[in-house]
Design a protein around this nucleic acid. Structure first.
Lengths: 340, 340
DNA sequence: TACTATTTTGCATACGAATGCAAAAAATAA
DNA sequence: TTATTTTTTGCATTCGTATGCAAAATAGTA
């Protein structure tokens, strides 16, 4: 059956030059005469030679692989991130090695250790919390890490998020402008910085108007938990007229429950606002008003930080980037009805 | 700043043994006395040693990396596949290296060449067409390839799909049972074997009842093209009462257009059936009747084939696996009204 | 105890490409 | 032409781990 692998030695022999000559011809910065270059190139083509990145990695110390840790792929937000990130990195000559982790300290720790074995040039941890000692170990390993969509209390690591506090704030402003007074909140997983910041921002803006949340439930960023949260929140007469749901993914769950189980209309009876602006939010079945996370910019910043840290390992500066999210008004929110 | 990388030599020195002893202790199959094993293990822990997979790859020829080529990440179907595939492979000690390709022969060819440089142990090509000469080159490279969710005319490569013909057949049967006579079809990208097979099966089942498709449009598996297709199909009075849409992703687009632009009710006015059974299909906002692709089984088969081919490279048998899809009845289809 | 069978260990080498160094070749100057 | 500078080239080594082989240590047998 199949061809043996062809190495730079084979090319060298075929071209009648040394292996180092082959290497130099194929390395952009190196010196080689046109004559040998030509010979090498034609030998490369004839033999169908492809350099072995693994061998190259061993000697250069650069694998051109970026490790990506993800926890929730079921949330629509992350496939998009993966796509954009991978595309952008591919353009820069890097590839993405995927690691799926459960969101527990233990598992994340294991996964990160595993990543390091692959000699990745950098790590992106998307929506994954990091204990500070794990963070420390990562730093020690010398591999740059960027937290994506998760902040960190001790800011030892670089992170890129949208400004979740501001996002929560804007959500509140929007509901207030529409005249809502009885306002609920459905929280995400409380271990996530995104959840905390969104809620703080939301509460802070309400407080300015001397309003506090009347109802609060936890959905943990999970569909069926969000559904349960909605059922609890709207199980009695005294329910809010507007709800901020900490992610679009959960907001869809809430809308489904409100409309098809509980018989509410959205937005006529209840106003709902989400967070993320995943593509489904714009489908007319939901038409969800939401706070848009600027994925493109977030990914861009992430890649910039990564490349910067890969190329200048000596300067140990960690950056905290927060990008302004924007309110996208659609049709899941409306002015409060004169109640009763 | 940070720690230099610790190698097996460092461990050896610390433990007072040779480097080969360290290697043997850490390699499952090899012989080592309990005494040295203990010394090595404790040195490993003290130094926080992690083996360098890259170096190991160089010598063993096994990278424990599987290359995954994907074209459409926007279709809900693929993130799920990625998640399941990655999870399963992780359990087997492999990782997934992602490559995003445009669905053109040229780009795919480039991407595959790129993958091979990384010395992956196998390649999964998800919903990516493969010209037969590219297939040949892959075979030549000796790296096992499995096509996922795409068949191939010349069956030189292994492939795992659901039985799309049968799926189309079942969709037709369902609509026929509901009494529909005027039936339309919205096609996916005509370069995809999935599209062709689904349509053939659908048409064949109709033909058995002497019925032919009255309307046909092409949506290319893309949302806005599917929307246009729907607009064209329902722009005049003489429209079908039921439509089979070649993917759920497109079906949602069609439903949105029917309901919110054209004022039809689904399923009262128009019955719709999709293909895939992505999670959104079960949300009450759509409640889409569809043909379920058995992702779990498909991924399982894929992984089995991969591991089999990795572990027994000599036997060059390529498998064509087609798994029966099942009809999931929800609420986007109903009996035909007595028309006029 | 002495001798053989078995296990454990270290030495040396290999994997494939990149690179410092010095020799060879080519280009330039005198 | 010869001397000198510059470029090109090959040799040898390196990265970190695995493994065949032979030596050393241990266990087993008589």
């Amino acid at each position: 059956m199949a061809s043996e692998k062809v190495t730079s030695m084979d090319v060298a022999k075929k071209a009648g030059v040394s292996q180092s000559a082959v290497s130099r011809v194929l390395t952009p910065g190196a010196s080689a005469s046109k004559k040998t270059a030509a010979k090498v190139i034609s030998a490369v083509n004839e033999l169908g030679y492809r350099p072995n990145i693994i061998a190259r990695t061993l000697i250069t110390g650069k694998s051109r692989i970026i490790g990506l840790v993800v926890a929730y792929l079921n949330n629509r937000f992350y496939p998009k991130v993966l796509e954009k990130l991978s595309n952008k990195l591919q353009k820069e000559g890097y590839q993405v090695l995927i690691f799926i982790a459960q969101n527990t300290d233990d598992d994340i720790s294991n996964v990160i250790e595993g990543i390091l074995e692959y000699q990745v040039d950098a790590i992106v941890a998307a929506s994954v919390g990091m204990s500070s000692d794990l963070a420390a170990r990562c730093q020690a390993s010398g591999v740059p890490i960027v937290l994506f969509n998760r902040g960190q209390t001790n800011s030892a690591l670089s992170s890129v998020t949208s400004d979740n506090f501001k996002g929560g704030w804007k959500a509140a402003k929007h509901l207030l402008e529409l005249g809502h007074k009885k306002i609920g909140y459905i929280a995400g997983w409380e271990g996530a910085s995104t959840q905390l910041d969104r809620e703080s921002g939301f509460v802070a803006a309400l407080k300015e108007k001397k309003i506090t949340i009347t109802h609060r439930e936890v959905g943990n960023f999970v569909r069926n938990e969000a559904q349960d949260a909605a059922r609890r929140m709207f199980s009695n007469q005294n329910h809010p007229t507007a709800v901020f749901v900490a992610s679009d993914h959960m907001a869809f769950a809430v809308i489904d429950v409100l409309r098809s189980e509980l018989g509410f209309r959205v937005p006529e009876d209840i106003s709902l606002i989400g967070f993320d602006d995943v593509s489904l939010a714009s489908y007319s079945a939901y038409n969800l008003t939401t706070i848009k996370q600027p994925i493109t910019q977030m990914v861009e910043s992430t890649v910039n930080i990564l490349l910067d840290q890969i190329n200048h390992p000596q300067v140990q500066k960690n950056q905290i980037i927060k990008i302004d999210p924007t309110l996208i008004k659609r049709n899941s929110t409306s002015s409060v009805k004169d109640s009763k």
